[in-house]
């Protein structure tokens, strides 16, 4: 029982990070139909800023802000330079464009920083743990869960009440009608990228504070998982992305905990097969995107 609870806490921590990443992907996808492969590189950029701040002796709290700001900036610049020229192109064109951006950035990190993993200074407190009854929970896990909850509440408020949030939701349902209502495409798309960069930055901080290192491919694996989570939840659906992220986190953690030792090597394939199984029954994901209903014949 204790093991189960322990693993559940871990699942919330991991699933929360996936949820934040998947949410960022879903925001961009729902406004412009782009699946951003370079989302992982936003994480990596934030990770390198944390590393640099650590080396320069900047206080950790301040370096978090800098890292997140860098991810936001990078996301906005990325949209302006790479994605605006292909804005109205097909989904495949945009996908490939982002794939190319991702690859170029990875090679640049390898050349100008280092191909090898770099240590990041993380405050001692994050690697300590707290006892709750029989549970031993890492401070970083608690921080991850708390951050995820705060972020989700903040985003929910933002999307419901803020002018740009409402515009983004409108654009997600029907971009052309939203534009006819006077919503500026550039504002909405830049807003979506800024938010997705923000989420990637937060996810990077959570990710790095559990691993204390950063390498050129750091963002690749978590964002790959976030892709899967976003599809699992329903591509383009924000609530779906959150649900998919958590579900994937749970699947992975429980498989790691309860799969017999001989099968552990097949953990990732099994997890993905479970995802595919869900998709066979719900091809549009757990919570399908509202844009699907809006398609008119």
């Amino acid at each position: 029982m204790d093991l189960f609870l322990q693993q559940t806490v871990n699942a919330f921590a991991l699933g929360g990070t996936y949820a934040l990443l998947a949410l960022g992907l879903a925001m961009v996808f729902s406004t412009m139909g782009l699946i951003n492969f370079a989302h992982g590189e936003l994480m990596t950029i934030a990770g390198y800023i944390l590393m640099a701040c650590g080396l320069a002796g900047v206080p950790f709290a301040f370096s978090i802000l800098l890292a997140i700001a860098a991810a936001v900036l990078a996301a906005v610049v990325m949209e302006r330079i790479a994605f605006r020229p292909v804005r109205n192109a097909s989904g495949a064109t945009m996908l490939v464009t982002s794939f190319a951006v991702s690859m170029i950035l990875q090679v640049l990190f390898q050349n100008f920083i280092s191909a090898r993993s770099q240590a990041v200074l993380v405050p001692e407190i994050l690697s300590e743990s707290v006892r709750f009854g029989g549970l031993v929970i890492g401070v970083n896990k608690i921080a991850a869960i708390a951050t995820t909850i705060v972020m989700l509440i903040f985003l929910d408020r933002f999307m419901k009440h803020h002018r740009i949030g409402i515009a983004m939701r409108a654009a997600a349902e029907d971009f052309s009608v939203a534009r006819l209502m006077g919503i500026r495409a550039n504002t909405v798309i830049a807003g979506a990228f800024a938010l997705s960069g923000f989420l990637a930055g937060v996810a990077a901080v959570l990710w790095v504070s559990q691993r204390a290192s950063v390498d050129p491919l750091m963002g690749f694996t978590p964002v790959l998982k976030a892709f899967i989570a976003a599809i699992l939840g329903g591509l383009g659906s924000l609530r779906g992305a959150v649900a998919g992220g958590f579900l994937l986190g749970f699947i992975e953690i429980y498989l790691a905990a309860y799969l017999p030792a001989g099968m552990q090597e097949f953990r990732d394939p099994i997890a993905l097969c479970l995802v595919v199984l869900v998709l066979i029954f719900r091809p549009n994901g757990l919570i399908p995107s509202p844009a699907l209903k809006a398609e008119k014949v």
Binding site: G33, G91, F227, I231, L272, V276
Partner: peptide, 14 residues
């Protein structure tokens, strides 16, 4: 569409 593309990505990983 894009959901199918990402599913093929999953296939590669599997």
């Amino acid at each position: 569409g894009s959901a199918a593309s990402i599913a093929t990505l999953g296939l590669l990983v599997i």
